[in-house]
Design a protein around this nucleic acid. Sequence first.
DNA 1: CATGAATGAGCCTTCATTCAT
DNA 2: GATGAATGAAGGCTCATTCAT
Lengths: 196, 196, 196, 196
Amino acid sequence: MLRTAMRVFAEEGPEVSLSRIAQRAGVGAGTVYRHFPTKEILIEAVLAKHVEGLVSAADRWTAQATPGDALFGFLLEAIETSAGRRHFCDLLPTGQGWPLAVLTAAARRFNEALERLLRDAQEAGAVRADIRTDDLTALTVGGMALRSAHRDRARGTRLVRLLLDGLRPPCRRRDYWGGHPRHRRHEILHASRSVP
Amino acid sequence: MLRTAMRVFAEEGPEVSLSRIAQRAGVGAGTVYRHFPTKEILIEAVLAKHVEGLVSAADRWTAQATPGDALFGFLLEAIETSAGRRHFCDLLPTGQGWPLAVLTAAARRFNEALERLLRDAQEAGAVRADIRTDDLTALTVGGMALRSAHRDRARGTRLVRLLLDGLRPPCRRRDYWGGHPRHRRHEILHASRSVP
Amino acid sequence: MLRTAMRVFAEEGPEVSLSRIAQRAGVGAGTVYRHFPTKEILIEAVLAKHVEGLVSAADRWTAQATPGDALFGFLLEAIETSAGRRHFCDLLPTGQGWPLAVLTAAARRFNEALERLLRDAQEAGAVRADIRTDDLTALTVGGMALRSAHRDRARGTRLVRLLLDGLRPPCRRRDYWGGHPRHRRHEILHASRSVP
Amino acid sequence: MLRTAMRVFAEEGPEVSLSRIAQRAGVGAGTVYRHFPTKEILIEAVLAKHVEGLVSAADRWTAQATPGDALFGFLLEAIETSAGRRHFCDLLPTGQGWPLAVLTAAARRFNEALERLLRDAQEAGAVRADIRTDDLTALTVGGMALRSAHRDRARGTRLVRLLLDGLRPPCRRRDYWGGHPRHRRHEILHASRSVP
DNA sequence: CATGAATGAGCCTTCATTCAT
DNA sequence: GATGAATGAAGGCTCATTCAT
């Protein structure tokens, strides 16, 4: 049933009614409730399961690849397998507001795994030194959104790679952004305000 | 009233009830319905307004900066001003499922502006040649998600810049991704499947 | 199991779910249903058991005390042991709406016992002659309510005794109520109607 | 609508569904909700209204009758007009567990009125000196139950009067209860325990 | 014969939408 | 044209009842 719930959530968004889920699982509404006393708990169970899968993936990558490849491989895999799960986007950065213990535990393990991967990759010189774990989290979320936003799977993946490449140590690249002269910065601010 | 609706949506999420909006606008519920016969139509109007703002911004950047700066400046501004508007994320890539003509029109104008900016930047050599307009759309969505995912505004913006830098022409960088030997690719797929 | 049901009903009110009862009885929900095909039937069984206890008590008092003491002792005991059982209050007066035969039988036996006690007490001159069996029933219900309504157990019991004393033959007491002059009676009616 | 709710509650008990009430009021379910955001709030409103009526009645009796008549008249009236309202029985003694301020306020005013009536009646010598306000409350509840338990209105009222007469100063009556010899008391206890 | 998972009707509550004033 | 009370269809949740194991 958890399987079905995951599928239905992924396909129809986190706002499907429990009865719809029950229907697609081929059971009565009360049955879902027997296993997950609350809709929120069901969502959390789904998320926790997914996060657990990611933690396993992190471990697998750690064991089977060089530090750099491990980090990049894992991030790409996490993004690819999580794309389209709006819950997940909402969950990852905060890890808060979710009462279920199992979920916060899973989120913690996820962050620890991410931290290990990042540290190793940085020590191996495969990743810029100024990146932090929560940057990776945000990047993952962004990657997921980006990935889901592209109609074309292959191109989406290519873009995600481009995105991740931003983590690699820079190659004699000037800072395109810091150099904006004062007046242009002002324009940005002005523009920002002008957009309703 | 549209103003109020935009503010309320931004502040309280896209799930506020219409009565709440009416309340905050200081009018009766019926009055909102006089202007926007459906909640969906109201949402679309809000989105369309926002998109119009972005189109104006695109025009402004086109007029006031070099092609490269214009594209990057515009994308950054679009991301910064749109961050947190979940509707927007859902809207941009597909442009579908939204019945209102005014919105598809706005979306089209937005895409045209984006296309112009991209073409100019590419002709100026400021952006990789293999980028397409829908890549930019996806990138924008990803940037918005990334941006919202970071608790720390400043770091969030820095990451968005990293993300956008991926568009710039590569500096003699080997392709980190294509080189994966066959068996590792297989592992990725395998892993992907194993994540629930 | 009937024991457990009685305890649970007394402790948690008549609205406990059957699963709760099954749980506290240490059996499966289905097992409860094997013995009591319906929740209502279970409730009736509980009530019948309680009524049976009261009938035994009536017999005991009949055998062991003078007619007057027997009636008063029994009524007090019935009230004290029944206080707080809302079902019981609902049941006693009507005896209706309860399909189960065993219950109406028990109620009949209870009324017969009460009738015997009353007749004997009246013949002994210990109780007013104008009291009828259904008065006693009503009085019992009132006593139970009164008894449950008092926070203070001891005072509650004292009040119940006051209540029961009303049954004893009057001591040259004028009728406080009959003497109301006509216009005041009208006021009472008027007032009654005016209370919503 | 409050009227209808009061009637329906009185007729069908406090457990009627809101939809039933709406149905009998001839309105949609949502309409009830508009006026009473919660079922509990509706119940409280009904109760408060009734209690207010009783407070007015208390004032009327105070103004129009001698202290003794006022107390007895009021109690009789309160019992007669409240009979059958199970809510009311549950409310009166505790006054707690009801979140709505308006209700606790009404309950407080009711108790104050009762206290005044009692004090005056006691000073006039029309009521035993050892009666306290909470005795009256309990007595009222008991009277209501008693009153509802009798099929025959007239006899019910007569019994209630008997009940209330217990409040009047005793006429050289021995204490029928205190004199029980020890062994009989033991029997009562034994009996109590023996009733399941 | 016991078990407890499954069922589904029903309850309270919410809210988009309509319409008399 | 504006108002906000009324509507009624869902949604989440509970629980008496059934039935395969």
